[in-house]
Design a protein around this nucleic acid. Structure first.
Lengths: 206, 206
DNA sequence: TGCTAAAACGAACGTTCGTGCTATTCTTCG
DNA sequence: CGAAGAATAGCACGAACGTTCGTTTTAGCA
């Protein structure tokens, strides 16, 4: 009972700390100090550093889904939902949902060269995220609101790339217009692929 | 004399190790073992870990410029050079010039949340790199080979984003077609902005 | 209220970290 | 060839790392 609450508190802090210092830079002693508890007491909740890392990744995934993906999925399916996902991500970036910038962007680039379960966990979350974007794209195509010739995987790749670029520009370069630039890029791309009712009529007339 | 050679040898290995384990994960003991020399002997070349990190960043910058930027700058100024830079970067990614993927992408995401000279050094290199792309874009506009309405900073942001996306897809997801996807994205974008001789004629006639 | 199990603690383990010293081995050049 | 100086090794340090252990505190229920 009590343990679960503590565990959650630990992970909430762990997620932010890891977004700042990296999952490898995340240290049990530092984390315990931060929370005003003993190293051993904290450690007992996880049993190993790797377990702590994996649990931290899960917690980060939950926060991301709750604060970004789930709200965006409320939008009407098709083009609006695709746009909502993009807007939601950029807003998630701007709001600094994780203290040190996007947790998964940082983790992806940190662990892309280290084999093991941690790497696989991160890759799994990113795969799910990319799949969510692809699905939104495919739905927009089904609804005939988006050019059917564009491969969902290709467009998802491009959108996700812009997200990385935005995080970079925002976090490292501290550029005030990072999010605006990213939105401009995405809007141009999506608008060019969009099938508006008038275009649809024109298509039908051919 | 001898020291300089040794120092160079150390840094060559340090750069690859850091691209795998991160600049923080790069450890003096591990690096010394890898090179078959003593910790203290290696340490004497730098005086502190931070100096080692800064020197490693410089060495990485040199390798990147020599193997990627400089060859691309041989291309004819204007649109061809811009394309050459993009192709060169994607090839640099594919060839795994750094053992663990793009050193600067990894370093950017690792240090975007940690203040200090290391962070500033990385940011400086990235700033130069972005400036190089922007300059190539501006030149292509001067030569009237690229839409003058696009802001160089905006297009450079988009291109650089695709680079991050390519590195992610290549290194973490191990997708065989990562580079092809990135090239597709860049080519579409650039071709759409390109001013071909026939378009130029049409423009002149207006 | 008193008992029991869960939770947290404090101290210590062995290891590795970065960083100093001092000695020894190599380079280099007169 | 031999001396001066640079380069490297050896050893030790304090701190921090992840981890283990036995003890103490706390929470939940009879």
């Amino acid at each position: 009972m009590k343990g679960d609450r503590t565990r959650q508190t630990i992970l909430e802090r762990a997620v932010d700390l890891a977004s700042l210092e990296g999952l490898h830079g995340l240290t049990i002693g530092r984390l315990a100090d931060d929370l005003g508890m003993s190293k051993s007491g904290l450690f007992a909740h996880f049993g190993s550093k790797e377990e702590l890392q994996l649990a931290t990744i899960e917690a980060a995934g939950q926060r991301f889904i709750e604060q970004t993906l789930r709200p965006a999925l409320q939008a009407e399916r098709g083009y609006p939902r695709l746009v909502a996902i993009c807007r939601a991500w950029l807003d998630y970036c701007r709001r600094d949902v994780f203290e040190g910038g996007c947790f998964f962007a940082a983790a992806s680039f940190e662990f892309d060269g280290r084999p093991g379960p941690v790497r696989e966990a991160i890759a799994g979350h990113m795969k799910n995220w990319m799949a969510a974007i692809e699905k939104a794209i495919a739905m927009a195509q089904e609804e005939e609101q988006l050019d059917p010739d564009i491969e969902p995987k290709q467009l998802a790749f491009e959108i996700n790339s812009i997200f990385f670029g935005a995080n970079f520009s925002w976090q490292l370069c501290r550029e005030k217009d990072a999010i605006a630039r990213a939105w401009t890029a995405i809007e141009w791309r999506l608008e060019a692929l969009r099938i508006t009712p008038s275009k649809q009529r024109r298509r039908a007339l051919r």
